[in-house]
Design a binder for these strands. Structure first.
Length: 679
DNA sequence: AGCACGCCGACT
DNA sequence: GTCGGCGTGCTC
């Protein structure tokens, strides 16, 4: 048979594959294989697609069928397992297969013109040669670490494990030694093995990459994240796809990579919200990773000091095996003492209570470092006129314009629009406009007044806009050139500041009363994480223990009691009980239909119609409501929550629902999110 | 989503 | 007279 029909997945919103004719030619007599890339004519343009199936017939009328233009034969086919992963993700998140499979491929492979893989391959070889072996032994583990590493390495088949360890307990060492054991065993057996390590944000954990390189001399390491340049991305992706890279360090997008010899998956800080993609295909890299481990029958490690309630629940029920690290890895490094400052009694000036100022002063006198955490960038979240009540609303969004003092501008954090700070009130002319509230810039300014001699640095998205500037800033802290660091959640993650003995948390209370039921879970994780920055080195003989001070107006709140006791267990138990009573995840499953339009009513009407589109048992369809941030960039947004106690029932409903919605010819832009995290 | 076609308003 | 606004329809 000289002719075949190829079913091709293309990156379009159309939810089906396209059939193309393939004819044997001089250079390729054999038909293509599923998983190969092809160039095809598509409408009036050309597109790169993935071969899904090779058939002998098509249901498409012969006069509509077009010929495949080119086969990317130089690239080994993507594996059936990879195609199955894409198919699962497409099904589960209700997106077309091509939209899952294609955008994750390097741009150079998706380009119409042929690329030279040779150049990329030479680059890989050169990079590998650059890191010559300078062999270093693994540091000794404590008993709990060793037990965990051995358990991971000894696991057979699909083995999901929750590595629950306090901050600074040395989870990374456990990952690396388990990986070393698995790689060594494969080498002894003469088989190929790859270990995938996912991290929330690669730029915030630069030590890890160096750590792996020195620990695994001669072992090829690939990194996959969105910060790579195109040529680099192709080289890294190829080294993984061709099975050369043995350790793959990546962010969430790495879970969709071709990993032909995958034998172990590790997800560091598994609770971190960054594992959820928040646009396009809204996947959870953690959930896909668990599916992938199940598919390949391999172990997967979910590591955290404050696991997601989903994973914790699985560990409690026995579905995941729980491995625990209860102590800090560095001997004599103890957990910091966490205390509260009642802001009703100790009134803050410049955002700082006298207790915190005294603690900062002590650190300055002793030559130790301090970290202040405030999850709000800018100078003040809003400016207002005392005389007439005007406030700096964004004209395009239901949000305030934030004052950015260094640039002398008001800026909307949602639509990005900016303006100069008005000299006087736009409505009444009053020249005395007041900044209300406090962001990192304002705290930095206040600190400079209180401690004029101190070396103060601010780290947030604004201060680190230029590439590499975040790294430079963190390096300065590590070199001891900074006394007081003030920052947003950027400073809470991963960094191991050895001379840091004080953490101050300035204004965490807003999350206590959020409408988002996950806010307290996130706040707890954030507080534990930032508290964990203190006291990572061994405590000096007779020295003072590290301290964490939390400024709050609600010192009686149970969340703070749990943070003070470093007691995730009972905090999680309480939250899970609440969630069960309230019928919330992880006890039920959700999907969210969003609609946007110039007119709010149009969006709500569409959702109302959608809610009546089909009837289905065991499904709760709630009323459409405007989103909490209703208008962004002059677009009104509304949403409709769908719930079920059964995941299969929800999946079956969504499949039928999507068919009905696509047939509705909506006048709005709509999208579906499965397992939403921000409601 | 792209990318075309198509039918009406205001510019050199 | 043309340039260009975005409604509508198609992609094997």
């Amino acid at each position: 048979m000289k002719h075949r029909i190829l079913q091709i997945a293309l990156d379009t919103p159309l939810d089906f594959c396209f059939d193309y004719r393939w004819s044997a030619s001089a250079e390729s007599a054999e038909p293509p294989l599923p998983g190969q890339l092809v160039v095809v004519p598509f409408g009036r343009r050309e597109a790169v697609g993935v071969v899904i199936a090779v058939e002998t017939q098509s249901e498409v009328p012969a006069n509509k069928l077009k010929d495949v233009l080119a086969l990317r034969a130089q690239l080994p086919p993507l594996s059936p397992q990879w195609l199955a992963l894409c198919r699962f993700a497409a099904d589960y998140y209700q997106r077309p297969l091509g939209e899952v499979a294609i955008p994750g491929l390097p741009k150079n492979l998706r380009a119409i013109k042929t690329v030279s893989l040779d150049r990329a391959l030479k680059k890989i070889a050169k990079d590998a040669a650059m890191h010559d072996p300078a062999p270093r032994a693994m540091p000794p583990l404590n008993a709990a670490q060793q037990q965990a590493a051995d358990a991971i390495a000894a696991a057979q088949g699909f083995a999901p494990m929750l590595l629950y360890g306090v901050t600074g307990s040395g989870k990374t060492e456990v990952y690396l030694q388990a990986a070393a054991q698995i790689l060594a065993r494969a080498e002894a057996d003469g088989t190929a093995a790859q270990v995938l390590i996912l991290v929330p944000e690669i730029n915030l954990t630069p030590q890890l990459e160096n750590n792996i390189r020195t620990r695994f001399p001669g072992v090829e390491l690939a990194t996959l994240h969105s910060g790579l340049a195109e040529g680099e991305r192709l080289a890294q992706w190829l080294s993984v796809h061709l099975g050369r890279a043995r350790i793959i360090l990546g962010t969430r997008l790495a879970i969709l990579a071709s990993l032909p010899h995958l034998k172990l998956i590790i997800i560091d800080e598994e609770h971190d919200p960054s594992y959820k993609q928040q646009e396009g295909l809204r996947y959870s890299a953690r959930d896909l990773a668990v599916w992938r481990a199940h598919q390949l029958a391999i172990p997967i490690v979910l590591g955290s000091a404050t696991p997601s309630l989903e994973s914790w629940q699985h560990a409690q029920s026995g579905r995941y095996r729980k491995l625990e690290l209860r102590e800090r890895a560095v001997r004599d490094a103890v957990l910091p003492r966490v205390r509260l400052i009642n802001m009703e009694r100790d009134k803050p000036a410049e955002g700082l209570t006298s207790t915190l100022v005294t603690a900062l002063k002590q650190r300055l006198d002793r030559g130790e470092q301090s970290l202040l955490f405030l999850n709000r960038r800018g100078y003040s979240p809003v400016i207002a006129c005392d005389a007439c009540g005007w406030i700096s609303n964004c004209t395009r969004c239901t949000a305030f314009m934030v004052l950015h003092k260094p640039e002398q501008r008001l800026r909307c954090h949602h639509c990005g629009c900016e303006q100069r700070i008005p000299r006087s009130c736009p409505t009444c002319g009053n020249v005395d406009l007041q900044p209300l509230g406090r962001g990192t810039q304002r705290v930095e300014e206040g600190l400079q007044q209180v401690f004029p001699q101190a070396r103060i640095m601010r780290i947030d998205a604004d201060s680190t806009r230029r590439k590499g500037s975040a790294q430079a800033a963190f390096d300065a802290v590590h070199r001891g050139e900074i006394d007081i660091l003030i920052g947003t959640q950027m400073v809470a993650k991963g960094h191991d500041f050895r001379n840091l003995t004080l953490v101050g948390v300035l204004n965490p209370d807003t999350a206590l009363f959020s409408h988002d039921y996950r806010a307290s879970e996130r706040l707890f994780a954030q507080l534990m994480q930032v508290a964990g920055r203190a006291g990572r080195a061994a405590q000096k003989e007779g020295g003072n223990p590290s301290e964490v001070w939390i400024q709050t107006r609600y010192p009686q709140h149970p969340l703070y009691a749990a943070v003070m006791a470093h007691d995730y267990d009972s905090f999680a138990l309480g939250l899970l009980e609440e969630r069960q009573h309230a019928g919330l995840p992880p006890f039920i499953y959700q999907a969210l239909l969003r609609a946007e339009s110039k007119e709010l009513q149009t969006a709500l009407d569409f959702l109302q119609e959608a809610s009546r589109a089909i009837a289905y048992p065991a499904i709760t369809i709630n009323d459409p409501i405007p989103m909490s941030l209703t208008r962004v960039a002059n677009v009104e947004r509304a949403q409709l929550l769908v719930e079920s106690a059964s995941r299969p029932a929800l999946q079956a409903f969504l499949r039928e629902w999507m068919v009905a919605l696509r047939g509705m010819k909506a006048r709005v832009k709509w999208s579906l999110e499965v397992d939403p995290v921000d409601i």
